[in-house]
Design a protein around this nucleic acid. Structure first.
Length: 336
DNA sequence: CGTTTTTGACCGGCGC
DNA sequence: GCGCCGGTCAAAAACG
């Protein structure tokens, strides 16, 4: 019996400017696109007084031409990059440009698979592309019939030939430190590595993982660096977990991480496997029922106390914070 | 000492 | 039938 080819398309998580957002994306696992509400807890950057804001505004006006040109060049560069990505997506998906609302930056990058060099590899890739196209057709049909496919963009349903068994295949990618040689992708599940192989398409090895949480769980995961960008890990999931995510059970939709830009609270707003989008505090009465429910949960005393607990825990475990606290206490102590 | 990772061998599908 | 290739197995090594 022929195994279904693991053709995966990839969600580009974008530049990893907020590690907390990326973590949240990975906690989402297969088929989930969490939306993060990042609340910055600035330790050293407390909100400036109003008059200071005005001063800063004046300073901004006084920005030199050189600085303005640098910024303009950066904006142009990013725009150009976005345009190129959009073109590639259009080519791949027959003009169906990635829609927003995927959670992260909401864009899908083209597969990072390199062009096959040999005729054999070309044919194989053609087969895989055909399957991807079938998936896109299915997606487009679903949209025509009124369904939303946004959350499903991270899933690729492949029908096994000659049987009715359907194996869910999805791909995600994550930007990592290029010097990081481990092929470990944290997604909330426990994985056991059972093999590693160097494939023809890609000089970097591909690691094979099985779900280690439940022995009967059929899910497999392949992780490999992108051939085009070694700082991107491409993970391909095959199958569906037959158990809840171990790190999610009984968990509040909130986590805290401390990164270079300061402590960040990340709120995962996922309901029934679909992501809901929150733009800062604009979750108003016009929000969908799911969102209202999430907002109610956020406003509940239980959530708040848990949040405070998590914040305290994150802050006290941050050496920068404890160092700053110690320094502040020392300053308050009288000199003897 | 139990668990996890590594790695070479093996297997099956596919194309020539 | 042969060779290539991706995926899996399983013994050995590493790790906590």
């Amino acid at each position: 019996m022929r195994r279904p080819p693991a053709t995966a398309y990839i969600i580009n998580a974008g530049r990893q400017e907020s590690s907390s957002s990326m973590d949240a994306a990975w906690r989402g696992g297969v088929g989930c696109s969490p939306v993060c509400l990042d609340l910055r807890v600035g330790l050293e950057q407390s909100p400036p007084p109003r008059h200071e804001l005005l001063d800063r505004s004046a300073a901004a006006k006084a920005m030199t031409d050189a600085e303005a040109k640098i910024l303009e060049a950066k904006v142009r560069q990013v725009s150009e990059e976005n345009r190129r990505l959009a073109e590639m997506i259009a080519r791949l998906y027959g003009g169906d440009i990635a829609r927003p609302g995927l959670g992260l930056e909401g864009s899908i990058s083209p597969p990072t698979q390199p062009r096959p060099a040999s005729p054999l590899a070309r044919k194989k890739r053609a087969r895989e592309n055909e399957e991807t196209a079938n998936f896109c057709d299915a997606n487009s049909n679903r949209q025509k019939s009124g369904g939303t496919a946004d959350a499903d963009h991270a899933e690729n349903l492949v029908t096994n030939e000659g049987s009715c068994r359907r194996i869910k295949i999805s791909g995600v990618c994550r930007r990592i430190d290029p010097s990081d040689t481990s092929l470990v992708v944290k997604d909330g599940y426990q994985w056991r590595k059972y093999g590693q192989k160097v494939t023809r398409d890609n000089p970097s090895p591909r690691a094979y993982f099985r779900c280690a949480f439940a022995p009967s769980c059929p899910v497999k995961k392949k992780v490999q660096r992108s051939a085009e960008d070694s700082s991107v890990l491409v993970a391909t999931y095959e199958g569906e977990h037959n158990h809840p995510c171990p790190s999610r059970a009984g968990e509040l939709p909130c986590s805290i991480s401390v990164n270079s830009s300061g402590p960040t609270i990340t709120l995962d707003l996922i309901k029934n496997g679909r992501a809901v989008q929150v733009v800062e505090a604009e979750a108003t009465a016009a929000a969908p029922p799911d969102l209202k429910e999430v907002c109610r949960q956020v406003a509940s005393p239980g959530f708040r106390s848990a949040l405070v607990e998590q914040m305290a825990s994150a802050l006290t475990s941050d050496p920068k914070f404890t160092g700053a606290l110690a320094a502040a206490i020392l300053r308050k102590l009288p000199d003897y």
